[in-house]
């Protein structure tokens, strides 16, 4: 026998991931072209995406605030290798750039696509702004990418 016996299968499991109340609010905000954050007045912390638990005191984040769709790029990468996207089961289109962006007035970073495809044109500390799709549906894809302001 040329190759030892093996059993092959490509199971496909379907999920309905609940966005939760805070996430639902965030996605609705994106649909309106707005970036919403949750705020803990005690700590104080303002975080995107909004969520129920503060990252400092782990208590309830009571307040939802809108933050400007601009921020600072704190890290980035150009993804250049092929791999299967678990959502589609086929190869994710490459190359693409994404980065960690700290929105103005927030304390954490948000991970999302960058419009720039050449990492040599990006730098840590760069100012960026969120670009929204014209047609929006209240989903993450309403946010197209971040583009450099300088």
């Amino acid at each position: 026998m040329s190759e030892p016996i093996a059993v092959r299968a490509t199971p496909e499991l379907h999920f309905r991931y609940a966005a939760g109340r805070y996430g639902s609010l965030f996605l609705r905000g994106l649909g309106e072209g707005r970036i919403l954050a949750s705020r803990c007045a005690r700590c104080p912390r303002t975080l995107v995406p909004p969520r129920v638990a503060c990252t400092h005191c782990f208590g309830k984040m009571e307040e939802i605030v809108e933050v400007p769709p601009r921020g600072t790029l704190l890290a980035f990468t150009l993804v250049a290798f092929p791999f299967l996207d678990p959502f589609t089961g086929v190869q994710r289109p490459i190359p693409y750039c994404y980065g960690m962006v700290q929105f103005e007035g927030t304390d954490n970073t948000f991970q999302y696509f960058l419009s720039e495809k050449d990492p040599s044109k990006l730098r840590v500390g760069q100012r960026v702004e969120a670009v929204f799709n014209e047609v929006r549906k209240g989903e993450l894809g309403d946010l197209l990418h971040f583009r450099a302001l300088e």
Binding site: T10, R16, Y17, A19, G23, F87, G138, E139
Partner: peptide, 9 residues
């Protein structure tokens, strides 16, 4: 509340 369709394949 909304739920987002996803899968793992």
């Amino acid at each position: 509340p909304v739920a987002v369709e996803g899968r793992i394949r």
